[in-house]
Simulated scan of single mutants.
Amino acid sequence: MAVSTSRSNKLKDEVYKAAVDHAGKNDNKEIILKFYEENPTSPIDDQGDTVLHVLALHRTEVACELLQLEMHHGLLAKNCKGNTALHEASRVGALKLAKLMVRKENSIVDHSNLVGETPLYWAAAYGQTKMFQFLAEKSNHSNLMGLRRNDGLTILHAAVMGEFYDLAKEIVDRYPPFLAVACNEEKKTALHLLAQSPFLFRSGTLYSEMNVADSSFIPLALLKLMIYSCLSIPVEDPNKGNLTDPEDSREPEDGRSSIKGKKRNYFSTSNC
């Protein structure tokens, strides 16, 4: 029994190493293929990730090949945090892979993780605009269900907290007004969070940061105006320093929101 378990763990280690191999050698792809055909929903790491979870982050082209196979793919399999492989594809903007997943299992778009985050939420939180647009068309969210997580943060909160203001504007335009005035557990709307951006306000204005924070009435027009204000601000201002993450100098990726913001730690950090 111990020998069998040891062999199984060794095989999973080999599959995991092949799945994260960005070089994409053909010889190790065969290891992935053989394991996947026999164990599509079997975890290959200590986080409960399946082959597709890992490939979605590291080798999306191989994941797309696997989904062409005529077999049961087990796409609704979740890791220990409740994430499906579509969650992982959503946060890196793997649109081709996401389309294949939804084609195989359309209900996957509405599955949330343990803290109530859907793939749509992750697309908003990571500024993946094209992915967000695709999932928004495929999802079945007619009310706040699926648009907010367990602590009340909505997809609009997520986009604002990530400073993806062009995506935030699209969310305001796409969804009914109730989303703009939805509060989290701390009774804060997305506008309250937006008000924490100090470069939006000038002292003495009617809607100063303090006034907005104390207001119980949030005009939708004001929210749109503030988002437009963010969009009009250049990414780099020589008089105010760099407004972007100094450790991230990459150009926006395909499908990513055009204004790259700082990642906020508002995801679940609990371990298995």
Rank of each mutant, 00 (worst) to 15 (best):
V3G: 09
A213D: 09
K188F: 14
K34M: 06
C64Y: 01
L179N: 04
T41Y: 00
T205K: 12
L86S: 05
G152H: 13
C230N: 03
I259T: 12
P177G: 05
A221E: 02
S107C: 11
M210N: 15
Q196F: 15
T189E: 03
G152Y: 14
D173T: 12
I227E: 03
S270D: 02
Q128T: 11
I259F: 04
N28L: 03
K188V: 09
T60C: 03
N79H: 08
K130E: 10
L100C: 10
S6K: 09
D27K: 05
K34E: 14
E61Y: 00
L67E: 01
R148A: 04
C80K: 08
R264I: 10
K260V: 06
M210C: 05
T129M: 06
I155V: 15
V160E: 09
P198T: 11
S208E: 09
L114K: 10
N113W: 10
A124D: 11
F217P: 01
I218W: 01
H157L: 14
D45S: 01
I44N: 00
V172S: 06
G74D: 07
D173R: 14
S270C: 04
Y175K: 01
K12D: 01
G93L: 05
L179A: 06
F132Y: 13
A98R: 13
R202H: 15
L135H: 05
T60G: 10
N79R: 08
L97Y: 13
S6E: 13
L76N: 10
Y175H: 06
D110S: 12
K34G: 04
T269S: 10
E236G: 14
E70W: 07
L167R: 01
L200S: 05
A195L: 13
L76T: 08
P252Q: 13
E247S: 14
L223F: 02
L114N: 13
L57Y: 02
A19K: 03
E105C: 08
P177T: 04
Q196H: 14
K81Q: 03
Q47N: 04
D45N: 10
L67Q: 08
A159E: 12
D27G: 00
T50Y: 00
Y121A: 01
N242C: 01
G82M: 00
Q196V: 15
C80P: 11
I108F: 14
L55E: 00
K260I: 08
F217I: 07
P198R: 11
K187A: 15
G162R: 01
G127Y: 03
K187R: 15
E185F: 11
V20A: 13
L76C: 09
T244P: 08
D254C: 08
S4T: 13
V51H: 00
A125C: 15
D46A: 03
G48A: 00
N83A: 06
C183D: 02
A23N: 12
Y16M: 11
N150H: 13
R250K: 14
E170N: 04
P246S: 12
P252T: 07
H192R: 10
T154F: 13
S197L: 13
C80W: 04
G48R: 07
A77N: 07
R91P: 02
D254N: 05
A2M: 14
V172H: 03
S257W: 14
N265R: 15
Y266T: 06
L243S: 11
K138L: 04
I32K: 05
L114R: 04
